[in-house]
Amino acid sequence: MPTTLTVNGRVHELADFDPATPLLWVLRDHLGLVGTKYGCGQGLCGACTVHFNGAAMRSCVLPLAAAAGQKITTIEGLAADARLTPLQQAWCDEDVAQCGYCQAGQIMSATALLAKNPRPTDADIDGALAGNLCRCGTYQRIRRAVHAAASTLPA
């Protein structure tokens, strides 16, 4: 039975898929959306974070069956009309990334945070991003970039 998956506003009809397939691999290996990263496959590192109806979700443990029919947004879908979001811009301005591999997941988690809490404290940021590992250790700059982006948003 075909599965209907909506990613970044585009509707995909997927045939012949095991409904247990994690969304991550559908995105990466079938839809060519490689911005969502594989880090652990156990929902423990956050590199695969996407938005599921606006909430940050680990796509590596999200079965396709659960994602079907829902509104999925990936890192590729954040910047509308090739304009960076305030968070993406802050990530560039603060020069957050080192290797950069985790940063898509960091930005997805931070975007979900700001949508709920436009003036987060350091503790709020630490709480919302504690599930996103950065092996290079850019945490200080991540905090700074979230604050910088928040300062551009209406409170």
């Binding site: 959306l33 969502t36 960076l84 993406q88 020069d95 990334a97 940063q103 898509a104 930005i107």
Partner: peptide
């Protein structure tokens, strides 16, 4: 590479 990293 920052501009590419932040859009995946």
């Amino acid at each position: 590479d920052n501009p590419r990293i932040v859009v995946g």
